[in-house]
Design a protein around this nucleic acid. Structure first.
Lengths: 222, 222
DNA sequence: CCCTTGCAAACGAACGATCGTTAGGCGATG
DNA sequence: CATCGCCTAACGATCGTTCGTTTGCAAGGG
C-alpha cells in the first residue's frame, strides 16, 4: 500500500494492485477510464460489505478521486450498482444460452454444457455474481424488474433442459423444479467459496459439478 | 396493515401480523418481551435489506418503541446482529449433530439424516439462515471468529460423513470436498427460495434433497 | 510558434438528512 | 420508595448529492 507509484491520472492509492491485471469484469463491459475504475472498486467493496456498507466517499477514495467527481461519470450510487448487477445477469444468461445452443439434442450433453457454463461464470466472476445475487434489494422496483426478467430467462433454460430430459426418458427425478433448484443453487454458491488457492482449476469444478448434475438427474439401475 | 389493534404495550404498528404466531426464531432463544420483539424485527428487516440497510430508528419503530429505548435491552446494533447470527449457527450445528448421532453406522442413512436436518433448518428458518450466512461482514473480528468456529463444526460433520462413506466403499465421488460443497451449498440456497406457497412441505424438500445427495455420492453401476 | 478558445474531468465546500448512540427525566409497578 | 421501561432531546459523525470553480490538454488562427 505504501510507496506505490501512481498509475492513474492525479494519483491513485489503495486497491490499485488488485486492479492491475483486472479480469474482474467481463469483457462485455465497454466502460473504461475512471468509469471502469469505479465499477471495479464498487465490485470489490460491494462484494465484501454490501451496497449499504460502502459509502460514496469510500468508493471515490479507492478510485483516487473526490466524491463529487463521481457524478460526472455516474448518475447515482444506485445506478452504479445497477450497472454491475445487469452486467452480471446478462453475462450469465448469454453464457448459458451459448452453452445450451452448442449442445442441442442430447439432454445429458446439454445439461453438462449448461452446468459447466453456470459454474464457470460463478468461478470466474465470483464478486460480480455475489453482488448480482444479493444486492437486488437496493434497486428501485423499475430496475429490479429489468434484472429479474434476465434472471428468468436463465432459469427457464435450466428448467426446459431438465424437463426435456425427463420427457425423453433420459432423466428421472422425484421433482423437476427441485432438481433445478439443487443444480442452480449449488452453482451459485461457488461464488461464495471459489478461490484459486484451493487448488482446483475452474475446469475441475465445472467438470465435477457437471458430473454431479448428471448423477442427480439419472436414476440408479439395479 | 390498517385497522390493527395494538397488541404490544404502548402500541405497535406494522410487521406485527407477521410476528403473531411467530416461529421466526428457534425455541432455543430465551429472549422475551421487547428484547424478543427486537430480535424478530431485526430478523425480518436484516433478512430483506441487510444489516446496513436498516437503521436503528426503523428497528425501534417496527418494535413500537423509541430508538433510545433499544439500548436498555441491547448493547449495540451489532450485538443484535451477533445474537441472530449466533442463534442461527448454533441451532444449525445442533440439528446436524443430533441428525448424525441418530444414524450412526450406515453412511447412506447418516448422510440422508444430515441432509434432512441441513435442509430442514434452512426451510424452517430461512430469514435466520440468510442473516447468519451473509451479514458476517458487519461483525467485528472477535465476534466473527466465534461464529466461524461454530460453522466449522457443522462443515466438519458433513465432511467426515462423506469421507467415512468413501472409506467404507459406499460412496464414490470425483472429489470429496466438492461433493460437500454441492450438498451444503444447495441446502443453504433453500433459504433463498423457500416459500410455503410453492406447494412443497418441508418434509418433501428434505426428502428429495436427501435422495439427490445419495445419488450424487453413489456411482452408477452399468 | 505563440496564443486563444473549448471542453471534459477534476476540485473544495457545502447542502439537508440521517446515522448510531448517550444523557437525563418521568410515570407506573411492586 | 426503589426499580424498571420507556420517554424527549440531543450529541457528533457521516450519509448521498449538488454547486460553482479550476485545471490540463488539444485544436485552430494569427
Amino acid at each position: 500500500m505504501e510507496g506505490m507509484i501512481a498509475m492513474a491520472p492525479r494519483g491513485t492509492q489503495g486497491l490499485a494492485e488488485e486492479l492491475v491485471d483486472n479480469h474482474l469484469l467481463p469483457s462485455r463491459s465497454e466502460a473504461d477510464g475512471t468509469h471502469r475504475r469505479l465499477l471495479e472498486v464498487a465490485l470489490l467493496t460491494f462484494g465484501e460489505r454490501g451496497f449499504h456498507g460502502v459509502s460514496v466517499r469510500e468508493l471515490a477514495a479507492a478510485a483516487g478521486i473526490q466524491p463529487s467527481s463521481m457524478y460526472a461519470h455516474l448518475a447515482s450510487k444506485e445506478a452504479l450498482l445497477m450497472e454491475l448487477v445487469m452486467l452480471g445477469h446478462e453475462e450469465h444468461r448469454d453464457r448459458l444460452r451459448a452453452a445450451r445452443d452448442s449442445a442441442a439434442g442430447d439432454p445429458i450433453e446439454q445439461i453438462r454444457s449448461l452446468v459447466r457454463a453456470h459454474v464457470g461464470f460463478h468461478a470466474e466472476y465470483p464478486l460480480l455474481a455475489r453482488v448480482a445475487n444479493r444486492e437486488l434489494h437496493a434497486l428501485k422496483p423499475a430496475r429490479l424488474e429489468k434484472v429479474l426478467k434476465v434472471r428468468g430467462e436463465s432459469e427457464q433454460m435450466l428448467q426446459e433442459t431438465v424437463a426435456g430430459g425427463v420427457a425423453a426418458g433420459v432423466f428421472s427425478v422425484p421433482d423437476d423444479w427441485l432438481a433445478v433448484a439443487v443444480i442452480g443453487g449449488s452453482g451459485i454458491r461457488v461464488a461464495d467459496w471459489w478461490n484459486p488457492e484451493l487448488g482446483y482449476t475452474v475446469e475441475d469444478v465445472e467438470e465435477t459439478y457437471a458430473e454431479f448434475a448428471v448423477r442427480l438427474l439419472t436414476e440408479r439401475r439395479e
